[in-house]
Every structure is written in C-alpha cells, then in structure tokens.
C-alpha cells in the first residue's frame, strides 16, 4: 500500500458518499445519470466477486463491501425511491455501446481466460468509460450543480492518483498491470476537459457551464 493509493481510495469513497448524500438530502437525482450509476454498480459487483474467494486485507474487504453497497443503494434511490426526479430526457447515452466493447475486449485481451479473471478485466474496461453517460448528460444539460462537479472531481481524481500508485509500484515493488494502467489512463483522460472546467470555474465559485 502507498500514499497515492490510500488517497485515491479515499477520494473514490468520498465521491460515492457525496453522490449518495446529495440524492438523499435533496431527495432528488436531477442532473445525475442513472445509467452511469448502473455501470458503476456492475463494475463493482463484477470486480469484487473475489470477496468470496480471496482475502487480501480487512481494509480491502471493507472497502469492497462499501463500494458495492453504496453503488447499489444509489441505483435504488435513482430508479426506485426518487424515480419521479430522474431526468430520462437527458440521460440518453446508449450504454450498450459501452457494454458490448467491454465484453468483447475482456474476452480478447486478458491475463488469464478464467471466469473471475474475465469478469475482472471486463470490470476494468467498463470502469474506464462508465462516467461517459454522466459527462454526456452534463454536456446535454449544459451545466452541473456544484455538488455534482465535486463528485466528478473526486471520482476523476481517484483514478488519476492510481496512475501515480502504478508508477510508484513499478519503481518500488517492480510489479505492474498493463490492463489496469492503460484503462486507468483512458479513464483519467476522459475527465481532462472536466478537470479544466472545474479548476477554472467551480473553484472560483462559478457554476459549471459547459459550452452546449
């Protein structure tokens, strides 16, 4: 474990807590892409099945359970409890165009052709693009509430910090995982324009307005 991964995991935890709390407190999921949340729930449930087979550490187990529980709870709030506030009209990204390539790529490029390894690889590929429906929705509505942009900043920072973690592990522990690294770079790259807008606008108290 290293500082980059710890801060990255905490940033990730912060992001999903910010989102769950925002929906719960405002009793509304306006501006939130339910499709992205479904993809994230799928990412965690497919990646963390090894909860039942391998024990890494208490930290690892607790965090996996939290990620699965919070992502499913968020989907429940969006699609069940506060369904009336779900913005169907702007959450229109075709997620089959993300799921199919992730499945195909996981079957073609993986470390080991076993059930759990294919699921893990699918989860890594899917996570790299899972935020697209949310970014697409923000671009369609042309703006995002500041709490949503804090959520996106924390979520984007987590994988950016993981890149530093992978560099650290490559040099200090002499191990690396190319699938996770390439997917992590793609995932972080997708946030770049958002990071720019967040730093130049939101941190100066302005609303996040995207050029529609």
């Amino acid at each position: 474990m290293n500082i980059f991964r710890i801060i990255g995991d905490l940033s990730h935890l912060l992001a999903i807590i910010i989102l769950l709390r925002k929906i719960w407190k405002t009793r509304s999921c306006a501006g939130i892409s339910g499709k992205s949340q479904i993809l994230f729930a799928l990412v965690y449930t497919t990646r963390y099945l090894d909860l039942v087979t391998t024990y890494v550490s208490l930290y690892n187990t607790v965090m996996k359970i939290i990620f699965i529980a919070v992502s499913i709870a968020t989907c429940y709030l969006i699609y069940m409890k506060f369904k009336a506030t779900y913005d169907h009209n702007h959450d229109t990204f075709r997620i089959e165009f993300l799921l199919a390539p992730a499945v195909i790529l996981a079957l073609l490029i993986n470390h080991d052709f076993t059930f759990l390894e294919i699921l893990w690889t699918f989860s890594i590929y899917l996570e790299s693009v899972a935020i697209l429906p949310q970014l697409f929705m923000v671009s369609k509505t042309g703006e995002a509430e500041s709490i949503t942009s804090h959520y996106l900043f924390a979520l984007g920072s987590y994988r950016a910090l993981y890149i530093l973690n992978w560099i650290y592990r490559y040099h200090n522990e002499e191990i690396y995982d190319l699938i996770a690294i390439v997917a992590g770079i793609v995932q972080t790259a997708l946030y770049c324009d958002f990071f720019y807008l967040y730093i130049t606008k939101v941190l100066r108290g302005k609303k996040l307005q995207l050029p529609a």
Binding site: H12, D50, V56, M63, H111, R169, E174, I175, L178
Partner: peptide
C-alpha cells in the same frame, strides 16, 4: 519488473 498476478487493488 514482473506482471502483477493477484489483484490486490480496489
């Protein structure tokens, strides 16, 4: 450097 086998990351 070797390829990481066990997925010990989240």
């Amino acid at each position: 450097p070797v390829h990481e086998q066990d997925h010990d990351e989240l």
